[in-house]
Simulated assay, not measured.
Amino acid sequence: MEVSTLSKALAAVARCRGDIAGAFRMSLARWGEGSPATLLLRAAITTGALGDDHAFAAMIAGVPTQSIIAAIDRISPWRRAAPNVPVLCESAPPQASWRNEGQVIAVSSADFETVRVNADKSIAGILVFTVEAGRELGDAFMGQLSNDAGGAINYAESDALLNPANDGTGTAPASLTHDAIKVQSTGSTAEAIRNDLATLLAQFGGDMSRAVWAVSSRTATQLALHGAALGSADVNVTGGFLAGLPLCAARGVPDSVLALIDPSGIVLFDGGAQFATSEQSMLTMPDGSVRSLWDENLGALRFIRVLDWQAGRAGCVAAITGIQWAT
């Protein structure tokens, strides 16, 4: 298993009992001054946490349960934003027009929607491990632990992004499917699914050339079972193509939803993630009990990822909801 830069840095911190400066010196001696792990630890001395966006992206790419946000972005990029910076989204895709040289140039789009993401919500968690495992098993163990953290992050982001019941009043941004165009599932046969897909495609208001399907891994396998009966379906557990459009699948997306998204109409802030380890903290467990890491010879990996999104163009998300044939 290839160990990511972030996992190497976390292993060094674990071996040094949470001392980032000590981990930096260890990495410097072991991997050299120009090593990505050493550079990551050098930056963490100031911030107190490992939080390089590139290192996090590399780690997420290697997690067995993929990020639906990253998977879609690789095919059709989201409209990126920064916290509290207003972004203008055209209500319709911009257009260009021919003109004679010297004529006035027309504005490509005269109707805008101002979108501002606050980036005031985050996905967070704490994983507990034995100090002996963190020290003795080293990079490979921390790689497994970071995979666990990445999988937990990916599940939480997928559910929040595409669960129609998420109206944004809780601790996550409102789902893209909550106020989206909705088509109620009419059945489980290939004919019923084809008809639902045709209805959705007719109502979809986004740019079809940029559109991507998003489904759960379980829903993807059920689509694969129908195969050619759906007209055009080349689907596997992580993605493929459906009705000629690319499809991304991930654990955490509700099984009852099949969404079509034009990411160019979605304003997204992705702050990456920060990781920190400790062997001296007091942890409050889900049952309310308090446990001392030091007393029990345990370590803890804390992860925080800041994410926010908002639809900036009406019609750029449509979803078949109420699917029962995927479970």
Rank of each mutant, 00 (worst) to 15 (best):
E2R: 07
R15T: 12
D19V: 06
D19R: 13
I20D: 13
L28P: 01
R30K: 05
G32R: 04
L40T: 06
A43T: 07
T47I: 06
T47M: 08
D52Q: 13
H54K: 08
F56E: 11
A57M: 05
I60S: 10
A61V: 00
A70N: 10
I72T: 03
I75M: 00
R80M: 15
A81G: 14
V85Y: 10
V87D: 07
S91N: 14
A92Y: 13
S97P: 05
W98D: 12
W98A: 15
N100A: 15
E101F: 14
G102C: 14
I105N: 05
A106D: 12
A106K: 12
V107L: 13
V107M: 10
F112K: 11
A119G: 11
D120M: 04
S122F: 11
I123C: 08
I123V: 15
G125C: 06
G125F: 02
I126S: 02
V128T: 11
V131Y: 04
V131K: 01
A133M: 10
R135N: 05
R135L: 11
E136I: 05
D139R: 02
A140S: 06
Q144E: 13
N147A: 14
A152D: 12
A156T: 13
E157D: 05
L161V: 03
N163H: 05
P164Q: 11
N166W: 09
N166D: 10
P173R: 14
A174T: 08
A174D: 04
A174Y: 05
H178T: 13
A180C: 06
K182R: 14
S185N: 10
G187Y: 03
A190R: 10
E191C: 03
E191L: 12
A192R: 07
N195M: 02
L200D: 00
A202H: 08
M208S: 03
S209Y: 03
S209L: 03
A214P: 04
A214D: 00
T219S: 15
Q222C: 07
Q222M: 15
A224D: 03
L225F: 07
L230P: 08
V235F: 01
N236R: 04
N236V: 00
N236S: 10
L242V: 02
L245S: 02
P246W: 08
A249T: 02
P254A: 02
D255G: 12
L258P: 04
L258V: 13
A259W: 03
I266N: 01
F269W: 14
F275Q: 09
A276L: 07
T277C: 13
S278Y: 09
D287V: 05
D287W: 06
S289I: 00
L301K: 03
L301M: 08
V306M: 09
L307R: 05
Q310Y: 00
I320A: 03
I320F: 03
W325T: 04
W325G: 15
A326L: 05
